[in-house]
Amino acid sequence: MFRGLYTATSGMLAHNRKQQILTNNLANANTPGFKQDQTVLRAFPDQLIHAMESGKFASNGGRMPGSSTPIGQLNTGVYSQEGIPSFSQGPLKETGNSTDLSLMDELLPENPQSQQKGSLVFAAESDSGQIRYTKNGQFSVGEDGLLKTSDGNSVLNQNMEPIRVDSTNFTVAENGQVTLQNGGSAGGLWIGYTENPEQFVKEGHGLLRWEGTPQTAPQSIEDVPLLNNTNSFVKQGFLEQSNVDLTQTMTEMMATYRGFETNQKVLQAYDRSMEKAANEIGRV
């Protein structure tokens, strides 16, 4: 009986965790560049149940060794896998703002070996001075003339240094080269490419931290032979929207709520059975 209590409780905890992830996706449905988290429910390792049979009596009066007959498998509960961001590209929205930039993942060529397109990212300097990555191209120009993310982090150029644009009157070519109002060049934006975006970990405020090996870390597009014939990486005046599907998310939230409610009712049924066993059977 107690095994059922633990199984139902694990189901409630797993559905609660999944609901938190879905709620966060829904809350960021209008956040530019946001990538929805995906999670699945997995069962704990199965247990194989056997029926133990006593051995038969031998001719000398002793007992033969017993045997076991497999009955079936039993799951002991479920758990929710950690949310993994989906890096599919969201729809592009035209804003007309010179400081709004979107990365063109859909125009990337497929790797003939892995059959994957990979993903592009901007680089930014975090408050602690470390290199972080972002898909959110909603930038602005700070008082110091540097290009900033929406949370004030400096956007980096090809030399991994803050890029200076001085005003909003600048243009960005599709290859990431920045031209100032006076016709001068501000260099190029650092645009990174990786075939393993699932190795990114969200840090909040649209920043991503690389948790993979240094060998597979995002490389500058100039250092990736696969992209030698590609020149369209960034589009000015457009923002990549969140890739959250509102209809699908709402449907999954309803299903998750029903799953939580079902496990809750099972837990209540066990509680009533235990109460009856303690108060009524003992009385007999």
Rank of each mutant, 00 (worst) to 15 (best):
T256I: 05
Q116V: 02
S80W: 05
F57D: 12
A173T: 14
M160R: 07
K56Y: 12
G66M: 09
T216A: 10
I131A: 00
T99V: 03
L208A: 05
S232T: 13
V155E: 07
K276E: 15
G11M: 03
G184D: 14
S88M: 13
S119E: 05
K56M: 09
Q268W: 09
T194N: 11
N182G: 07
G282P: 11
G212P: 00
S67T: 15
G212R: 02
L22K: 08
N159Y: 13
G129C: 02
T95E: 04
Q181Y: 09
L41S: 02
D37F: 10
G188I: 01
G77M: 06
G142S: 04
L226C: 01
R272V: 03
S86L: 15
G152K: 07
N136I: 05
Q248K: 15
N153L: 07
N175W: 11
Q38A: 13
E143V: 06
L74Q: 12
E240F: 01
S140M: 09
A58P: 00
K18Y: 06
E195Y: 00
K148I: 00
L226F: 08
S114M: 07
T216R: 11
R17I: 14
N30P: 00
R209G: 11
Q81S: 14
A173V: 01
G183I: 10
S128D: 14
S114Q: 10
E280C: 04
G118K: 04
E222W: 02
L180G: 02
P70R: 01
S68L: 06
M274H: 03
E252H: 12
E261K: 04
P45Q: 09
K148Q: 11
K202P: 08
V224D: 11
Q20H: 14
V141I: 05
